[in-house]
Design a protein around this nucleic acid. Sequence first.
DNA 1: AATTGTGAACCTCTTCACAGCT
DNA 2: AGCTGTGAAGAGGTTCACAATT
Lengths: 211, 211
Amino acid sequence: MKKISDSTVKRLSKYYRSLEHLIEKGVETVSSEELAEMDGITSAQVRKDLSFFGTFGKRGLGYNTRALKDQIAEILGLNRRWNVAIVGAGNIGRALVAYEEFRKQGFDIKLIMDSDPQKIGNEIHGLRIEDVNRAPELIAQERIDIAIIAVPANAAQQVADMLVEAGVKAILNFAPRSLKVPPHVHIKNENMAIEIEALSYHLSNRNRANS
Amino acid sequence: MKKISDSTVKRLSKYYRSLEHLIEKGVETVSSEELAEMDGITSAQVRKDLSFFGTFGKRGLGYNTRALKDQIAEILGLNRRWNVAIVGAGNIGRALVAYEEFRKQGFDIKLIMDSDPQKIGNEIHGLRIEDVNRAPELIAQERIDIAIIAVPANAAQQVADMLVEAGVKAILNFAPRSLKVPPHVHIKNENMAIEIEALSYHLSNRNRANS
DNA sequence: AATTGTGAACCTCTTCACAGCT
DNA sequence: AGCTGTGAAGAGGTTCACAATT
């Protein structure tokens, strides 16, 4: 399979959401130009991104919103359910358990774990907080596909190592530290401070906003 | 001022965290090679990124960790405090109010607002939830620099318009929808679903992880 | 001897521009 | 006539490789 850039995959997620929005509004057909305008990019970019995966439009007409949304769901693997575990029942872990957008797109939070005895046994959003020491057993039992790390920075690498050991193949890291995992494990970072720091940079340097 | 790429700015945030980690460990000097290894990139990239802003290292020796951290803080605008407002007191809004990493890097959450009468008046983390209708007044009063949108997708654009109207110059958007703002307003998206969908894509297509 | 700082080469991603289809 | 799909051109970002410096 041809190598698809990370930027392209991320834009597909954006198109997917824009299409959802259009479908809600009852729009049945959309041009690459309109889709591009919604996400602040160029129409050539939209067409090029889609062209890596096939031909979905009709020349002279555009794209059928429902059909394109389904095709993108297929490409992104959103046409199935994924079992997700969260490590860390702090503020972020708790917010993620309840995050509707995850469940809506096929990500089912099946397991939340923590190391704090005070927290273990409590329920969040109908889910019992389990002891992180039971992770290997529980991850196998719940057939976890993706693990989310939501622990403090200084515990993150250790948790990542444990998850890899337990056989997890994909990790989403919310801790503000770069983690090391073996080449066969997929890892993505969601560092919420990085984006706000980019805003800080732009405000400090008084750049024009959209440059 | 020379145009600095978004990638460079984001990497600076990463270097900043890696340096914090090294300083905690008592390390006083670091080479571009070591810093690169921590963040999984090349040493040339580290040196090139830094070179846009000045010369911070000593040839033959490397970089002083504390000095470099301070220089990056200066570049990113983390050597001052920023006043932040959050719109939306749902799960994400509540998690962000308590997010230590923000406060630690200079972002003070001064205001949280919601439209739900049931929530208005309640306290989160010692902060009273205010009526979003009072936003213009409160944003001016608290001298808000950055606003965070943490409302459902279908309310996000309306909130963004209101924030722009109220004079906010920088917005961090957690709602899963692309927003339109005038050119003079800085906006960054923190769509938590995009990264997990990228994992879904990679798992679905059984690509090698680090490719 | 070691490591930075940087022009040049290289590579990847984006945009252009138009043939091809509806 | 209108809009897609795509090869080619262009822009931008990354890596190389080495002179400069400690």
